[in-house]
């Protein structure tokens, strides 16, 4: 199972999470987003970049509750809430955005 990014293949698991985290590129993110039926806007990128920064710092993808709290702290309550995040990523902001961000499935996502 693999994504095709301009002729390069990137392996992913049965749920669509990439196998090797260092394979991630912005182009790959667009490819995964397309498969997820997500049209990447600046707002989507803001969340994806935020998740990548969080992973870089803590080595885990945050659970949704933790993501909401951290977004609220950084961007304020208008972005740090469930509704805003679910509008951007209807199939679960933590799961879907993490997949696009090239991270593993969130720890604490049950």
């Amino acid at each position: 199972m693999a994504y095709d990014v301009n002729g390069t293949t990137v392996e992913h698991d049965e749920e669509g999470y990439i196998t090797n985290l260092s394979d991630w590129t912005k182009e790959l993110a667009e490819v995964i987003a397309k498969e997820e039926n997500v049209d990447m806007t600046d707002e989507h990128w803001e969340v994806v970049n935020f998740l990548r920064e969080y992973y870089d710092e803590y080595q885990i993808a945050p659970a949704i509750r933790v993501l909401v709290k951290a977004m609220k702290k950084k961007f304020g309550p208008e972005k740090g809430n469930n509704k805003y995040l679910y509008e951007l990523f209807p199939y679960g902001p933590a799961k879907q955005a993490c997949k696009i961000a090239g991270l593993p499935k969130p720890t604490g996502c049950v």
Binding site: E57, Y58, Q59, I60, P62, A70
Partner: peptide, 14 residues
């Protein structure tokens, strides 16, 4: 092996 020391720092967030 994975350096999971930074993950202890996330406990407060959880």
């Amino acid at each position: 092996s994975k350096n999971f020391a930074p993950t202890y720092m996330a406990l407060g967030d959880y």
